[in-house]
Computed example of a mutant assay.
Amino acid sequence: MRRRVLLERFVAIGVSLPGLALTATPKAEVQVFKSRSCSCCAVWAGHLREAGFTVAVLDVRNASVERRRLGMPDRFGSCHTALADGYVIEGHVPAAEIERLLATRPKALGLSVPGMPVSAPGMAVPGRSQPYQVLLIDLAGQASTFASYPG
């Protein structure tokens, strides 16, 4: 019984023993470009951290400048832009969809949740919900539905 408890503790803290693969593959770092005054962006960054991402928050004067620099068309804009392993992530995209994007690695610019839908991570308002879509933006700037959330 003592060995089992010790092994469980090693697993809980991510220690790897010879011959045993007990650690998970680390997730990509996400760089978030946001306005210093935007609190919902900070909440979204927290959502990513809770999902296991390493997040670097960079306060910028104007997040739309970063969006354009990274090639995301303005029509898919939101309040912040992020970069995850070469993909542009625009707006309040759920961590699960970023994980799926990085696992499948489609030829695309990235993902977007345009605007600021109430139900998206970082935008939750108790008692309110709003359906929204996560869009996959291809290299030509065209969108297709990557995931739908009912709200």
Rank of each mutant, 00 (worst) to 15 (best):
G122T: 09
E99L: 14
L48S: 07
G115H: 08
G71H: 09
I137D: 11
P114D: 05
K27C: 01
K27A: 05
R68I: 04
Y87W: 07
E97M: 12
R100C: 01
T145R: 13
L102V: 10
D85G: 11
I13P: 00
V113C: 06
F33I: 07
A28D: 06
A103G: 10
V55T: 04
D138S: 12
E66G: 00
V118T: 15
A45V: 02
A28T: 06
F53M: 04
F146Y: 13
H47T: 05
R75Y: 01
Q130S: 13
P26T: 02
K34A: 08
G52S: 07
P26G: 07
V93F: 01
D74L: 12
L136Q: 12
E29F: 00
I13D: 10
L135R: 14
A45L: 03
A12F: 01
V88M: 10
E90Y: 10
L58S: 13
I89D: 07
T104Q: 14
V15N: 01
L136D: 07
P73N: 05
L58R: 15
L83V: 05
V125M: 15
V60W: 01
T23H: 12
K27D: 07
L111V: 11
A42P: 03
A51D: 08
G19E: 09
P114G: 04
T23F: 00
P126E: 14
A103L: 10
D59C: 04
R75Q: 14
P73F: 01
H80P: 06
E99Y: 00
L101R: 11
A24H: 08
V43L: 09
R105Y: 02
F53R: 07
A56Y: 00
T145K: 12
A24L: 12
A95E: 04
S119C: 07
G71Y: 08
G141P: 04
W44C: 02
D74H: 08
V125Q: 15
T25F: 00
A143E: 15
R100W: 01
A51T: 05
F33L: 04
E97W: 01
P73A: 04
P18G: 04
V125D: 11
L83Y: 03
P106M: 02
R61T: 14
S16W: 00
A63R: 07
E99T: 13
G77T: 03
Q130E: 15
G52D: 05
G91F: 04
F33D: 10
F53A: 05
K107Y: 00
P131M: 01
A96N: 02
R49A: 09
A140N: 15
